[in-house]
Design a protein around this nucleic acid. Structure first.
Lengths: 227, 227
DNA sequence: ATGTATCAAATCATATACGATCTGGGCAAG
DNA sequence: CTTGCCCAGATCGTATATGATTTGATACAT
């Protein structure tokens, strides 16, 4: 037998457990931006000591989900419009390149799968389902960039997505008018890849697709016609 | 009165102290790639307990300088040729974009400073001084990308450089024939920026400059004419 | 001789304990 | 009434202690 450190047979260290637990609380909004993460309090809730909780928080800090100050403590990172812009801009860069690097090694099956996901997204538009749409959107892009042969780069892409999805992405991500364009751009991107387009072309298409979403957000922010 | 946690008036936590200490040992080669970092041993050497050392190591892991495995421990990350390629490729991407974003906000003084640094680099070539050359190279590029308004992106650039410089960059970085081209490309890059070139042009110039160094390394690896 | 089970030392992961530091509120002086 | 000092509670940072896991060596059976 023998399980992991603690007693649960989950195979995770308590630090990892705390990490995921806090993380999920952040993404589901229980801990909203600015919320103060107190070691002892979280430790009691999870029935562990403060040490692994501290480690989890430092990890979350490295991921950019919380901010931390010495002798003060940690709080959930604020995601204001500026932060959002910077994160999206960075993601557009790394995701674009990762997609371009993946493109040559994608087989026909994978591309077909991506097309099906995109079709589902189109369906979501009809019976207005923003939650599924956002989920499928991640799935679609994952399909295209996961094959990226550069693990560092792939890690950066994951971190970017994770930052966005953890920090109440939903507030920002769904800009009504943008969704239709988005689906169309997906198709265009797939066509480029399928025709073996130049790496730079693929990269810029993927990058501009994301920057387009960002622009839509910025434009909408100025003239908030529909809340 | 009152200093930081411990007793030293350095204003750093012991965890930060350990972080820097281990880091410097890695960059000066005392801890070479593959070296096993044992908590208790380092803790004794620094005269602290294992807890802050552990935290320092987890941070170094997040920075990619060490690898870590649960219940096993940490060791200095191996930087083999593949790793080097991936790191350089990623750096070319983020540094290129950061430079392009910086370009519009660089004033004449800063550009002039960059030109002087590049002139110094040219001097280094004459009296063969690879160490200074490498240092000046960082200084030159820092001058161009530090003004980047996107802090996330800037952080990624710093991490890339830090990875390279910490992990015995010198082994790889100095490819004799490449240095002359490098100086010339620096001049070309400065010209582009000074003439207010398109962001994409600047980005690709900076990116290809770095990829050029990478190519030189790869080419040289195949035909090791001069050791 | 080779392979396998067992055990001890080394090391990691976590709990508990305690001093250091910050924060907020009450009290005194102006 | 305002301003500044001071203290108590809360929280952080680290040391020490202990259980859990790995690893390598030894002994035994085949």
């Amino acid at each position: 037998m023998t399980v992991s450190p603690g007693s649960a047979a989950d195979g995770l260290s308590k630090a990892q457990l705390a990490h995921q637990w806090i993380r999920s609380r952040i993404s589901d909004g229980t801990y909203s931006p600015g919320y103060r993460l107190v070691l002892g309090q979280i430790a009691r809730e999870l029935d562990v000591s403060a040490v692994p909780v501290r480690e989890a928080i430092r990890l979350l800090e490295a991921e950019g989900l919380v901010t931390f100050e010495r002798n003060i403590g940690a709080q959930v990172a604020m995601l204001d419009a500026t932060e959002y812009v910077h994160t999206m801009q960075t993601l557009s860069l790394v995701e674009g390149y990762a997609t371009a690097l993946s493109a040559p090694v994608l087989d026909a099956d994978t591309l077909e799968r991506a097309r099906r996901i995109n079709a589902e997204m189109a369906d979501c538009l009809d019976h207005f389902d923003p939650v599924s749409f956002t989920r499928l959107n991640l799935e679609f892009h994952s399909t295209l960039f996961e094959a990226c042969p550069n693990p560092h780069l792939l890690d950066l892409v994951h971190r970017g997505w994770s930052r966005l999805s953890a920090l109440r992405d939903s507030i920002f991500s769904f800009v009504p008018g943008r969704a239709h364009e988005s689906v169309a751009e997906h198709t265009a991107l797939l066509d480029l890849i399928e025709n073996g387009a130049d790496a730079l072309q693929v990269e810029l298409a993927a990058r501009n697709h994301r920057l387009g979403t960002l622009d839509a957000f910025l434009t909408r922010q100025k003239s908030p016609s529909a809340p």
